[in-house]
Simulated scan of single mutants.
Amino acid sequence: MIHKDAIVHPSAQIADSAVIEKGAFIGKNCVIGENVIVGYNAVVERDTVVGDGTRVCMNAHIGGDPQDYSFKGEDTKLIIGKNCLFREFSTVHRASTKEDVWETVVGDNCFIMSYAHVAHDCKLANNVTMTSFSALGGHCRVGSFVNMGGFAAAHQFVRIGSGCMIGGKATLLKDAPPFCMLAGTPAELEGLNSVGLKRRGIGPEVRMELKRALSIYMDLTVKLVDLPEELSFLHPYPEVLEFIDFIKDSKRSFVRG
């Protein structure tokens, strides 16, 4: 159902089961999936795919131009997965042209709360929660089941490993390894996110091995370049291997303190 007072570009594709409420704007080349709700005065600006079951609440603005001086209006995209929720005044921008794939991506089941911001070229995995006023700079990579507290922020190009809990007002200037809790400005490691792992059904033996991995990782007498070898002696649970793989690839170094 499309409200008579909504504005829809002729090139937009909207599923029959979608609801476009009064005052909403659907721009050029947008694709709106099944059972999507675009609320009162919400904006899906252009070149945006919104997956089935997603809700864009009133006054949210997604698919806007990247805030990038070099952007010249190219046809970059925003791809949003299924069953996401974008609360009022949240913003998500399309990509710039600085990466091979001109796409900002938000995975399935993500919850972007009021006034949160996802910048250009970010890639969010599934089940990411961004609390009100949290923000991701451009080109960030966020793993699955990450939770960012209110007013938390990540510098551009920062990677946040899956299962991380980022405390309120934390400032991430370096990569955050998977399954950790971080807090402070600049952010520091507070330990393993054991509660989050337990809630996801990760067994005690895996959690214990991840604690060992984190203990080695936080030992500053071990050089960063030597960490993969030091961690290779741990039991190769998938989560441990994910932890090791993450630290093998960094452009901004890591939070270790």
Rank of each mutant, 00 (worst) to 15 (best):
C140M: 10
P238Y: 12
E229T: 13
Q156M: 09
S70R: 08
I244L: 09
S134C: 08
G168M: 09
N193M: 10
G73R: 02
G33D: 02
T131S: 15
V36G: 02
H235I: 14
A125G: 14
K198A: 14
I26Q: 02
G201H: 03
L231I: 13
M130V: 06
L189C: 14
G167V: 06
I14F: 03
H9S: 12
K4Y: 00
R212F: 02
V36A: 07
G150Q: 07
A176V: 15
T48P: 05
P186C: 10
E99F: 01
G201L: 11
N109Q: 07
H139S: 08
D75C: 10
V225R: 11
G163A: 07
C140Y: 09
N35M: 00
G23M: 03
R256T: 08
S11T: 15
V118K: 01
V19D: 10
K198W: 13
G150N: 04
G33A: 08
F254N: 13
V44A: 09
H9T: 05
G149K: 12
A154I: 12
L189I: 15
F86S: 04
C57G: 00
C180K: 00
A116H: 02
P204L: 13
L189E: 08
K77A: 13
H139V: 08
V49T: 15
A187E: 09
D121T: 08
I216R: 13
C164R: 01
P228F: 07
K251H: 13
S17P: 07
T171H: 04
H235T: 14
G138Y: 08
G137F: 06
N109G: 03
G64H: 00
L210C: 11
I112C: 05
T129F: 07
I79M: 12
L241E: 15
Y115T: 07
S132I: 11
M208G: 04
F151V: 13
P177R: 03
F243W: 11
A18W: 01
G33K: 10
E88I: 11
C57Q: 13
C30K: 02
N147W: 11
F71E: 05
R46P: 00
E88K: 10
H139R: 01
E205H: 07
G143K: 03
Y237K: 06
D75I: 12
L210V: 07
E74L: 04
H61C: 15
M218N: 01
D47C: 02
K251I: 06
S96R: 02
D68P: 05
P238K: 10
L172F: 04
G161D: 02
F71T: 07
R94K: 14
K22H: 03
G64K: 01
T54I: 10
N41S: 11
A95P: 12
T129S: 12
H117V: 09
I160D: 04
T171V: 15
D108A: 04
T171D: 01
G107Q: 03
T97Q: 02
E21Q: 09
G161M: 05
R256E: 04
R159I: 01
I62F: 09
V195T: 13
G27Q: 02
E21H: 05
A170T: 06
V56K: 11
G168L: 07
C180V: 15
T48W: 03
V56E: 09
E209A: 11
D219K: 06
F246A: 05
S253W: 00
P204D: 14
T129A: 12
I112R: 04
I244W: 07
